[in-house]
Simulated scan of single mutants.
Amino acid sequence: MPLSLYLLALALFAMGTSEFMLSGLLPAVAADFHVSVGTAGTLTSAFAAGMVVGAPLMAALARNWPPRFSLFAFLAVFLAAHLIGAVTESFAVLLVTRVVAALANAGFLAVALTTATASVPPRQRGRALAVLLSGTTVAMIAGVPGGSLLGTALGWRATFLAVAVLCVPAAAGVLKGIPSRQQHTAVALRPELAELRKPRLVLVIALAVLVNAVTFGHFTFLAPVVTDVAGLGDWWVSVVLVLFGVGSFAGVTTGGRLSGSAARPVVAIGGVLVLSGWFSLDVLGREPIVLLPLVFALGVVSFAVGSTLIARVLHHAAGAPTMAGSYATTALNIGAVAGPLLFVAQ
Rank of each mutant, 00 (worst) to 15 (best):
L166K: 08
Q183V: 07
P340A: 10
A86L: 11
T17P: 09
P122W: 08
L22Q: 03
V168E: 11
F221D: 08
S148A: 15
V266H: 04
P321I: 07
T114Q: 01
V295E: 05
S23E: 15
L201P: 05
A92Y: 13
S36Y: 05
V144H: 02
G147Y: 07
G339F: 09
L281I: 04
D282M: 07
V272I: 05
T159Q: 15
V87C: 09
G217M: 03
G299R: 12
W236R: 14
A76R: 06
P293Y: 04
M21D: 14
G319C: 09
L79P: 04
E195H: 10
Q346T: 05
G50L: 08
G143S: 01
F343T: 14
S90C: 06
V29A: 08
L75E: 10
P56Q: 08
M323H: 06
P340H: 06
L207N: 10
G233C: 06
P121G: 04
L7T: 06
L243F: 12
L79Y: 07
A328E: 00
V225E: 15
L161N: 13
L298V: 01
A304S: 08
V202M: 12
P145C: 08
G256N: 00
V131S: 00
A86G: 13
V283Q: 13
F33L: 14
V252S: 07
A104C: 04
A186R: 14
I178P: 03
R200Y: 06
R181S: 13
G24E: 09
G16Y: 07
F78Y: 05
Y6H: 13
R264V: 09
G135M: 01
V290C: 11
V274G: 00
G255Y: 04
I334R: 09
G177M: 02
I141M: 05
H315W: 12
T308V: 03
F303S: 00
V242N: 12
T88K: 03
R157G: 02
P169H: 08
A28Y: 11
V274P: 01
F219G: 01
V77S: 06
R181W: 14
A317N: 11
S4A: 15
V301F: 02
L196Q: 05
A76L: 10
L8D: 00
A223T: 06
A81C: 13
V283F: 07
A142E: 12
L284A: 07
A112E: 00
A263W: 11
P340L: 11
T253A: 11
R123F: 09
V163R: 06
L150W: 02
F219D: 04
A142N: 13
S248R: 00
A328M: 00
F78S: 03
G177F: 01
E89H: 11
S90D: 11
A268Q: 12
F296L: 10
L71Y: 01
A223F: 02
S261A: 15
L292V: 13
V111R: 03
A170G: 04
G271D: 14
Y327F: 11
N212T: 10
L291E: 10
S302M: 05
H82T: 10
V225M: 07
L95H: 06
T227C: 00
L8E: 01
S90Q: 11
T322H: 08
A118L: 10
V202I: 12
I334Y: 06
